[in-house]
Simulated assay, not measured.
Amino acid sequence: MNELEPISIREMKREARDLYRGHWGTAIKLNILPIVAVVGSFFFVSLIMAVVVYSLTQGTINGSEVAGQADTSSDNNSVVFSVISDGIGMLFTWSIAWGIVDWFKQPKADQHFKQSLQIFSNGKFWQSFLLALVQNILIYLWTLLFIIPGIIKTFSYSQTYYAYKRDLDQGKRANSLTDYITTSRRVMDGRKWELFLLELSFIGWYILGFLTAGIGYIWIIPYVTGTRVAYSRRLFGDDQSTQSERIVQERTI
């Protein structure tokens, strides 16, 4: 068996930065939905925590009453809702990543916000939703075995979005939607730990985003998305040599 050539985390990050250089405003625009969601959630949680702390210090909340309200019963409806809502969230994540994929292909072209919502305009919404739903169901089922198998399968299925995007761009159609999940499993064979390390390398940035009261995520989220796309392009061999060098050359012509 041939040993896989490692993909440099540092190089993938550099490709993302090279793509965004001088165009961070565009990168933020394409990622505005997750940015608003993350920053908004940060402020909402902070507000709730502040209210709870204030209430506790004022003695208006009885600790035993709070504990007594915890509901540990299993609710099938909540599970179904969670899987479906996660599938919808995955659709938006895919669509935003697809916009970055298109940007890598044409770094000199004007980038518009609608590119991050292309999943609603490419005529494949329900097909895409079904694929995202199937992927989430599979991950959920693996998670039931234990947390670790679910995490492993999350990395194993991580390239489904890119395999699917390639066929959409080429007007192709797999025999079944699960073929894209199979493709992701195949290309990630032997690389799940590598991708885990790539994700782990952003931990410092996530901490910085937290320390800046969520403001730092305005730049961190596009950076992470761009790096993930750069990794996918290298994984599938679609970067045609060194992508960062090609971008720099095109912008200097």
Rank of each mutant, 00 (worst) to 15 (best):
M1C: 07
E3R: 11
E5V: 10
P6K: 09
I9R: 05
R14N: 09
E15T: 14
E15S: 14
L19K: 04
G22K: 08
H23N: 14
W24T: 03
N31F: 00
I32L: 15
I32H: 01
P34F: 08
V36A: 15
V38N: 08
F44L: 15
S46V: 04
L47S: 12
I48F: 13
M49G: 14
V51N: 09
V51E: 13
V52A: 11
L56N: 07
Q58L: 10
G59I: 07
G59D: 04
N62V: 13
E65H: 09
Q69G: 13
T72G: 08
S74W: 13
D75F: 02
V79E: 06
F81S: 13
S82Q: 14
S82G: 10
V83G: 08
S85T: 14
S85M: 14
D86A: 13
M90A: 14
W94K: 02
I96K: 03
W98C: 02
W98A: 05
G99E: 09
D102C: 02
W103Q: 05
Q106M: 07
P107K: 07
K108Y: 04
A109D: 14
K114P: 00
N122V: 04
F125A: 05
Q127K: 14
S128A: 15
L131W: 08
L131A: 10
A132H: 04
I137V: 15
L138R: 03
I139N: 02
L144I: 13
L145V: 15
G150I: 08
I151H: 01
T154Q: 11
F155K: 03
S156H: 01
S156R: 10
S156K: 10
Y157I: 04
S158K: 06
S158P: 01
S158L: 04
T160Y: 04
A163T: 01
R166Y: 02
K172L: 14
N175C: 00
I181S: 09
T183D: 15
S184K: 08
R185V: 10
R186P: 00
V187I: 13
M188F: 02
K192S: 07
W193H: 00
W193N: 04
L197D: 01
L198H: 03
F202H: 03
G204P: 05
Y206M: 06
I207H: 00
G209C: 06
L211H: 02
T212F: 06
A213Y: 14
P222E: 09
Y223Q: 05
G226K: 07
V229W: 05
V229H: 06
A230R: 05
F236S: 02
F236C: 01
D239L: 10
E245P: 00
R246K: 15
V248T: 13
I253H: 08
